[in-house]
């Protein structure tokens, strides 16, 4: 089991969701985050104050998957999130110790596989 974390552009979040759906990946969390990945800073001006927006808005996907789904999930994040410009984001894959489904007490593989899934 792996936890796949994808940080993508907010405007590409819908495309990523669509790609994940097509890859049959179900069960994910999504949060709005701010971060810096070395992209160019954006300059904004408010009256006399000029600021460099050092942190960019991103959307962070967290998807826990069983082994056969790891690669399709990574592919979906890359395919849905890519524009080719600096600032498209990153995918992190980390090992997962344990997963428990709170309702039934199922653990691990049973728990990461959505109820209607395969």
């Amino acid at each position: 089991m792996k936890l796949v974390i994808g940080v993508v552009r907010p405007e590409k979040a819908n495309d990523v969701l669509e790609a994940l759906y097509r890859a049959d990946v179900r069960g994910l969390s999504l949060s709005r985050v701010q971060g810096h990945g070395g992209e160019l800073d954006r300059v904004e001006t408010y009256r006399g104050t000029t600021v460099k927006m050092g942190l960019a808005e991103k959307v962070r996907f967290e998807i826990a998957v069983s082994e056969p789904f790891v690669q399709p999930t990574i592919d979906a994040l890359c395919e849905g999130g890519r524009t080719g410009e600096v600032g498209d984001g990153k995918v992190f894959v980390v090992p997962l110790e344990q997963v428990v489904r709170i309702r039934s007490g199922e653990v691990d593989r049973g728990a990461v596989t959505p109820v209607q899934g395969s």
Binding site: R9, Q34, T45, V51, K52
Partner: peptide, 26 residues
């Protein structure tokens, strides 16, 4: 995709100020 506020005006309607680095100080 980024929104016309940032690209046309260089401002946002709902800016939090987090991550904003002062370039020209008051």
């Amino acid at each position: 995709a980024s929104g016309m506020d940032v690209t046309e005006h260089g401002e946002e309607a709902y800016t939090s100020g987090e991550g904003a680095i002062l370039v020209v100080p008051e």
